[in-house]
Amino acid sequence: MQSNWSQSAAETEGLTVEQAIANLQSPDLSLRYYAAWWLGKFRVNMPAAVEALIVALEDEADRTELGGYPLRRNAARALGKLGDTQAVPGLIRCLACEDYYVREAAAQSLGMLDAPAAILPLMELLTGGVEEAVPVPGRPHLTQPYDSVIEALGALQAKQAISLIQPFLEHPQAKVQYAATRAMYQLTQEDSYGQSLVKALEGNDLQLRRTALSDLGAIGYLPAREAIARCAVENSFKLLALKGLLEHQAKLHEAPTQDTIQVMTLMDSLL
């Protein structure tokens, strides 16, 4: 596999790769937690790092007062960034973890990996439909990480999940609606879904405008380029969304096209 991390940049941040991997087993739990984040941040996709992070998905030592597993969350997040499919079985097991945030991180990472084996386990988290997708009393989240699960199914091209995802277009929470809209676009390529995300760029809530921007970037919806550049959001978010459009085109065409040149011209204007 191609190594995609920058050693010089990473090591200026205070750790070496060997230290970070060793720290995943440190008696000091905060060092374990930081090491997992660090390996993901700098995309250290060496086999030794991947193996150590997979072991950390089963960690029992690092617990919060409410029973959460902070190290598992960070390890799951990091493994999505490292692009090694050896992590898939461990991440699928995490979908059953009692900690909501471990399930959320695992769903997000499975969507980033080439993981067709994750489709059925992800679909199972949606089986109760919108009726069961309600807030957990006393917690700031729903029963499942619906938005992350739906986004992962879209990214994995899980066409068999279309009928399961479609009802979530009507979910009361906007971020779940957007996730369903984004996945439906990826699964059907129907323009109307892209257009509803473009419309969401004009909403009143800054956080939701940022979400819609990142959704448009994730699906590479080219007709949104002008609306993205105009949207009332910080330039760094717009640049990232336009980068998504550009990357999507770069997969289809080796050399720049008229479309990608327009996207880059917009990006240049946001620097």
């Binding site: 191609q2 995609n4 550009l246 990357e247 770069a250 997969k251 050399a255 720049p256 990608t260 880059m264």
Partner: peptide
């Protein structure tokens, strides 16, 4: 350069 977007910008600059 590994990043696809940055690569595209290099190609555009070259053109």
């Amino acid at each position: 350069e590994k990043d696809a977007a940055v690569r595209s910008r290099v190609q555009f600059a070259q053109a």
